[in-house]
Design a protein around this nucleic acid. Sequence first.
DNA 1: CCGTATCCGCCTCGATACTG
DNA 2: CAGTATCGAGGCGGATACGG
Lengths: 125, 125
Amino acid sequence: MKKINALESDFDFKNCPVRKVLDRFGDKWSLLVLLILGKKETLRFNEINKAIGSDISQKMLTVTLRTLEADGFLIRTIYPEVPPRVEYTITNLGKSLVPLIDNLEQWAKSNMSAIEKSRDNFVKV
Amino acid sequence: MKKINALESDFDFKNCPVRKVLDRFGDKWSLLVLLILGKKETLRFNEINKAIGSDISQKMLTVTLRTLEADGFLIRTIYPEVPPRVEYTITNLGKSLVPLIDNLEQWAKSNMSAIEKSRDNFVKV
DNA sequence: CCGTATCCGCCTCGATACTG
DNA sequence: CAGTATCGAGGCGGATACGG
């Protein structure tokens, strides 16, 4: 249905991979959880909770973990004990994302303060 | 105000750089605009609009461009002509992000279909 | 051509209460 | 301990109409 103007050489952003990544990881907690599991490999629910620092609600942590599990970024193992024990282990797929997050982190550390300064000045003008 | 338990070795996610990046670029259009400008260096408003493919509203493109300008990712040049001409040029700061986006793009191309398949199966169970 | 202004739906996220 | 269920606020983004 889309007319491609040869002179415009339209990019293909209909199934843009970058867009897909943002749609999955642009949420508030997924990448943080992956980073944490990337360092510890396997953690229990409450350990992840404490690692984040109790800024996250129980509900959101549950939702985030379920979504990551559904996508194949971690494995959820339930031990039928009392009290219950549930462990989350990062997969190879999950690990493959960690270096990219590290890159983002490095970039942010190098540039983010300059960006924030720029934005502050811009608002004032 | 925060109690650090030595045994927990809490991560520092209060000013987490990754979180800052997501807060700035987790929106719908910023990275796409940067990618486009990364390829063409300088473009007019309507050229960017057409490159995206008219999925974006005029309002959102304006907001996105202003935010990117405020952050120092691009320069906005207004030519006092009739009809008006406005050109957007990517800065070095903007260019520095492009390789990272490319990395994300490559990762997505390699893994996103498997992820979507995993998610579909998960929902069905 | 390049915007601004306004209104409004949706969807994420947080707070709270309850459970096996 | 590790969830589930429900409600509600807030903000992003789309539609539309208008302006220099």
